[in-house]
Design a protein around this nucleic acid. Structure first.
Lengths: 230, 230
DNA sequence: TACTATTGTTTCAAACAGATACAATAAATA
DNA sequence: TATTTATTGTATCTGTTTGAAACAATAGTA
């Protein structure tokens, strides 16, 4: 990580959503030797499109390439500037990182969220962080800087755009049952939905392709599998 | 305008909407001696919140202080980097500006839109521009850089958030008729609305305060004046 | 007093949404 | 094989919202 390689004062933070089958989760990193949690983020190379930088960071952390990405807000307040915290993070690093005082500068950060298939991912920590793990969105711990606020903004955006954009596509495998689809909606919205009405609404949208039934072995009627029409 | 005073590589562009009583309009500036049109924009001081910078720019250009401002997207592609155009703009300037090659750098720009009362404003050009004028949103000429795209994105955002946020407040005088309110909606949405249904919907929201009638002299029933409840 | 243009309200039907009930069915069990 | 259970798919009933049109009120003009 070299000062001259990146645009100064500009960063991005990614809220990476995944669906465990039951709960909506996000990825958080933990900085070396501090126990401090934060959103995975990164910087933009001088000759790199902003979107590209975020995709690159996502690929490095998740190995995924084709993910749904949405920019939702840019954070530029002065309260988010906390050089003393960044200083401590750098101090807690091993010595193998160059002394980057440019990290102590003020940064304006562009917020993105990604929706990925939880199952397909083996999250990987980066040079600055010990670990990267999934956390339930309904019990996010205290995060560094303004990252709790950023998560909240991402969730709001996701919720209000849930219907318009068929975002659930990206959180489920290719084929899924109506129940699984409903669980995605419930996890994102944070509320329970009426099963019959949900099914009626989804079918009336005309976006679902019905496939064969899924026999799970349970002693009850087998659900159909669906996919999103291409 | 001094290099060291501002954050490098970071700019903002403002789409300033006004309502003429009939049409939705935006403010565009024309650069000295070029005839080139662009959105009014600016830069962020090193110790200034991003929002504050935009408010400052708006105050300088419109004299208005309390305006509705909304951040809608951040533009960070490489296509928007056009140093040769910026070079020509600077060349067309009078010599009283210092040679700012920092303006030729790549900029990531945060898009904001403002909603202001068209009547209350006497737009003022800045140091770089000859003039600043209103243009109908449904016939925006070719603009510099990616500014046509930025306007389009602003309009989309405005349209999709029109209902949720009572944005029309900011485009009308304190008191207005139901017809004027409907005209704001129609100008923003770009479509005609049914009068009776519009009135029913607005009244049912419970956000309007009804005042005295407005006698305009026309030979017909006089409309009530309304204001938004505080 | 009739006429005109515009505004406020009502009405009717169609579409939609919430809640519940009913029907179908895959497997376990008696 | 018949019965039971859990779950899924669909239908029904109700109340609400929405679109289109009609009706009623009224400020000025002829």
């Amino acid at each position: 990580m070299n000062n001259s390689e990146y645009l100064p004062h500009i960063a991005y933070d990614s809220v990476i959503f995944g669906f465990s089958g039951e709960k909506l989760k996000i990825l958080l990193i933990e900085y070396h030797n501090t126990g401090w949690l934060a959103l995975p983020g990164g910087f933009v190379k001088k000759n790199e499109p902003l979107d590209e930088a975020v995709i690159r960071g996502l690929r490095e952390r998740t190995g995924l390439d084709q993910v749904y990405l949405e920019q939702f807000y840019t954070f530029g307040s002065l309260e988010r500037v906390r050089p003393e915290i960044m200083q401590k993070i750098l101090e807690a690093q091993d010595a193998n990182l160059p002394e980057n005082h440019w990290l102590l500068d003020r940064f304006i950060s562009v917020g993105y969220y990604a929706l990925i298939d939880y199952e397909k991912v083996e999250p990987m920590p980066d040079a600055l962080s010990d670990s990267i793990n999934w956390y339930d969105v309904d019990s996010i711990p205290d995060l560094l800087f303004d990252h709790n606020f950023i998560v909240q903004k991402a969730l709001e955006h996701l919720r209000t755009h849930l219907d318009q954009k068929l975002l659930s596509v990206n959180l489920l495998p290719e084929r899924f049952t109506m129940k699984e689809l409903q669980q995605v909606y419930e996890a994102i919205l944070g509320e329970n939905l009426n099963r019959a009405n949900f099914q009626r609404k989804m079918l009336s949208l005309g976006i679902l392709q019905r496939h064969e039934k899924l026999f799970s072995g349970g002693s009850h009627k087998a659900p159909y599998l669906y996919s999103f029409k291409k």
